[in-house]
């Protein structure tokens, strides 16, 4: 399998009032086509910078970001983004919100085709019948579902998610993990998921990348060797528990502490 996303030796620093703030230091990682990479790490370690780099919204000081064997220098139409804040447009209905990327990426697509595509996705995530509602009429979980639909409506090769489930309660979050799994089965895409939730990273990821503290590099990469059609029960198996332990230890190291003795 070829690598769809390749990040090679990326180093980046932000200019702040109190001098340069290095966030990434020689970060190297790769995500094969169709794979799901979960990125975990301590707060403020440059995970969001990583999403903006992959999306082409900014350029690194040093190093290269490659998508599909092409160097990323500017935004491209084949990327979808989802954030912790669902950022739905309040003046549009749910259906119109989901259609938004198509208006930019596929201006020639007919209105009927756009709406059919959006309705198909809304059905997939369990929002059937909510297409005519305003975002303010939906719960937080439902808004995030709509936001997910919007991020993949134009069939991007790469889906970049920056803590999309971070603001949801634990049960809603688990529901959305399963929605995400079902979406992947129907709509193949390569995904980079930034998260703080280790269980989320193991349930959804094909690989989990642990970033070190700032300035961050890829400190540890875990191959999640679990079947694709996972259920939540899998998190309670010894294999998953062992992975979660390993990740926990790695996070401790990234935070500059000694891992606990088991």
């Amino acid at each position: 399998m070829t690598n769809l996303i390749e990040i090679k030796g990326v180093t980046h620093a932000y200019t702040t009032a109190s001098g340069p703030l290095p966030v990434l230091d020689n970060l190297t990682m790769a995500v094969p086509e169709g794979e799901f990479a979960a990125v975990v790490g301590p707060s403020g370690c440059g995970k969001s910078t990583l999403t903006r780099l992959v999306a082409g919204l900014m350029k690194p000081d040093q190093g290269e970001v490659w998508l599909h064997g092409e160097r990323v220098k500017s935004p491209r139409k084949t990327v979808g983004m989802a954030f912790q804040n669902p950022v739905l447009l309040e003046w549009r209905t749910i259906l119109q919100n989901v259609i938004l990327p198509l208006e930019i990426v596929a201006p020639k697509m007919s209105k009927a085709d756009r709406e059919a595509r959006a309705m198909e996705l809304l059905d997939l995530v369990g929002l059937t019948g909510f297409d005519g509602k305003r975002p303010s009429e939906l719960s937080g979980g439902m808004r995030q579902r709509a936001s997910l639909c919007r991020s993949i409506v134009h069939k991007p090769d790469v889906l970049i998610m920056d803590e999309p489930f971070g603001a949801l309660d634990a049960f809603t979050r688990e529901d959305l993990w399963q929605t995400m799994r079902d979406l992947r089965a129907k709509e193949p895409f390569t995904c980079v998921l930034i998260t703080h939730d280790l269980r989320e990273s193991v349930f959804l990821g094909d690989q989990v990348i642990v970033m070190s503290g700032r300035p961050a590099h890829a400190q540890f990469i875990l191959d999640v060797d679990l079947p694709a059609d996972r259920t939540l029960d899998i998190l309670y198996t010894p294999e998953a528990a062992a992975m979660l332990h390993t990740l926990r230890d790695q996070i401790q190291i990234a935070q500059g502490r000694n891992p606990e003795v088991h």
Partner: peptide, 22 residues
């Protein structure tokens, strides 16, 4: 909020489109 701009900017939308649509 920057996210509002980013959802369209990531798709290569022009500044004018972002102004008009968002």
């Amino acid at each position: 909020e920057p996210e509002y701009r980013d959802i369209l900017r990531a798709l290569g939308a022009s500044n004018f489109t972002i102004f008009r649509k968002i």
